[in-house]
Amino acid sequence: MTLLGASGSISSFKELAYVFTKEYTSYRTIKKNHDHLFNLCKKFDESLRDYIKRFKAEKAKIIGCDDQVASSAFKRGLPTECELYGDLTISPCQTLEEVFATAERYALWDDDRIAAKKAAKQADQLAEQASQRNGNNKDEGKRRSQPEGDTPATESYTKFTIPIHQILAQVRDMPWLKKPSPLKGNPAKKDTSRYCAFHEGHGHYTNDCFAWKRHLEELVRDGHGTEFIAMGSIQQIKDCDAVANEPPRKKSYGSTRF
């Protein structure tokens, strides 16, 4: 029996089934097994919370997925330097539910760190924009970037791997940190949109504070905080010491912590 016309006709149900299968094979959903979960890995720029959601979504596609296999696959997908990986290794969870509960707690910590980094980045961008605006007006820039009035704008400083306001936050309670002299001028006339954590007052940003920059240079010369110094600056310091025939610093470069 011919199902279609003479041109391109199908003469039997068997032939019809073959043509139908061939036509729609690409739309068939391929079932995934447990091993599929071991192909999942946390991406470098992916938050822990997003990795958890993605893993759960893939697990839901596997019918009858074994929880023990899923637990092993979830841990395998984490970077070995991840704190959660270490926790799951030292204190293994008994069930997949416990694994996800532990992961959610670490996700809260991860979310907080991401938010803090974002806030610090925004603060750095605002400080940089403000510094650029000040540079357009030399006289105004000099008044704002030199609150002490005794540091030349062309003075060079050591390059650090993190902004100097973040360094200050880490060493604020150290006994060797010197307190600066009070800011000069009328506090009522200060720009309250600019705050210096070193002086604990308004008028300029911490990253633009020459008093903090000078004191930080003194700390570096005394061997403090070398782990935050960029490698190129470390070599420059060594070269300068060699030319000046100065004795070695109190602490070795690249290994000292505040």
Rank of each mutant, 00 (worst) to 15 (best):
W212V: 04
L16E: 11
E104L: 13
Y24W: 10
D35G: 00
I62Y: 01
G141H: 08
S71N: 09
Q129P: 00
R257W: 04
E128W: 03
I63N: 09
D139Y: 10
L168F: 12
P147Q: 11
L48T: 09
D241E: 08
S7L: 03
A60Q: 13
R105Q: 15
D45F: 11
D222T: 06
R113D: 11
N245D: 09
T226D: 07
P147E: 07
W212R: 02
T89M: 08
K22L: 13
K142V: 04
T226E: 05
N136F: 13
P187H: 07
L108H: 01
P92W: 05
G135M: 05
A153K: 07
E200N: 13
H199W: 03
D35R: 06
K184G: 14
L40G: 02
E148C: 15
E217M: 08
A101R: 12
S12H: 06
D35Q: 05
S9T: 11
P92H: 05
P187N: 09
V69H: 03
G86N: 11
A57L: 14
G86Y: 01
V171L: 11
K61W: 00
P152C: 01
A211V: 13
A188P: 01
C41I: 01
D45V: 05
K32Q: 12
K75S: 11
L96S: 08
K61Q: 13
R194N: 08
K56L: 11
T226C: 03
G135P: 00
V243P: 00
E140P: 01
V69F: 05
K53T: 14
M1I: 00
I63T: 12
R113P: 01
A130V: 00
K213A: 12
K159R: 13
Y51T: 07
H204Q: 03
P187G: 05
G232D: 13
Q132M: 09
A120Y: 03
K251W: 07
L40S: 10
R221M: 09
V99E: 15
A242H: 10
H202T: 07
R54W: 03
